[in-house]
Design a binder for these strands. Structure first.
Lengths: 192, 192
DNA sequence: ACCTGAACACCGTTCAAGT
DNA sequence: ACCTGAACACCGTTCAAGT
């Protein structure tokens, strides 16, 4: 990459992060280019799709979250490990509004630039779920994809002005539904 | 209303229903006008906002759903009544993709043409919830707005290609979380 | 090798001009 | 009283032309 291209690339990323933080994952691509001071074509050559841009934007955090899941596999309580990770996953998707919908469609589209990162994260979550199913109280009918769907659902709730204030409570509602055989949902709150 | 205007209005509604069924609640307004064979300005005078169009499109079903809630208030089991209604509410929002997000934002925007219909439905649902909290096993910390948030979350799940196949299972997961003190989530399935 | 402005085909929304 | 095409300010995306 030529040095001016490198400069463009980095400035584009910094700007994109700010704009996406402000406007959400469906922010105008043109607006990002404009605010970065480059033509729209320059943005599109560096990031041929919105998914490609978001993959670059999110990959670091997605990998972090994947590693946290891996680390939690050796935590003493399988249930607590799952709930802790779930909490972090929901906190992550709430950073950028609209990102859960993008991630969901990336999962069903193998050609999306975001697909691999999302699928990797899902695998890591699936292992935590499996352990909680084996030695914990997690619902045995649930799949890793279901877990992702519920994370997405909580992300969606967080994106809605009318519901977002209640998202901590609704997290506990859903967490207690996953750990179906726990005595009370309040157990989930102690570990945060 | 002049007779040609009346004709336009009805044709617009029929077309809009078809297009929204096909493309979802965020279908292009211009496309609806085009397919109805009128200019965009004609659509916008009949329905000054997308919410106004969707209110007209949905009002009948929303009122039906509200009345069903009212009727279920005298059902023998408060829990079953709540779950039955929840099931119908989720089935309804799944008809038009994207409609839950529109409804959620209508709830937080009193000036939306959809606001009244949605708020009315929420009230009816809230009464069913309250009864299940009083004489049933519904979680006492839950509000009617939380119930709506969960309906929306299930609608969102139904809108995602990657998750929609599992929405019946996830309905049961969430229904069991609302009726927190039931012995098993399988109880919820008998009444459908 | 990279960038750019202009172009294409859209969108929601409005308005002057028509009948 | 109602409708219309054209207009305005956008959008994602592409491409020929520049340096």
């Amino acid at each position: 990459m030529r040095s001016d291209a490198k400069e463009n690339y980095h400035h584009l990323l910094v700007t994109a992060r700010a704009v996406v933080a402000e406007e959400g994952a469906n922010a105008s691509m043109r607006d990002i280019a404009r605010k970065a001071g480059v033509g729209p074509a320059t943005l599109f050559r560096h990031f041929p799709t919105r998914d490609a841009l978001l993959d670059t934007l999110l990959r670091g955090s997605l990998e972090e979250l994947t590693q946290k899941a891996n680390a939690l596999e050796s935590a003493p309580s399988a249930d607590d490990a799952l709930v802790t990770w779930l909490h972090e996953a929901v906190a992550f998707v709430r950073i950028y509004s609209g990102v859960v919908t993008l991630m969901a469609s990336a999962l069903s589209d193998a050609s999306s630039a975001l697909h691999a990162s999302c699928a990797g994260l899902r695998s890591a979550g699936t292992r935590l779920l499996a352990r909680a199913q084996a030695v914990g109280t997690a619902d045995k009918n649930m799949t890793g994809s279901d877990l992702f769907a519920l994370i997405g659902a909580l992300g969606w709730i967080g994106d809605q002005a009318s519901y977002s204030a209640r998202s901590d409570y609704l997290f506990n509602v859903i967490a207690s539904a996953i750990l179906i055989n726990r005595p009370s949902r309040d157990v989930a709150m102690g570990i945060i």
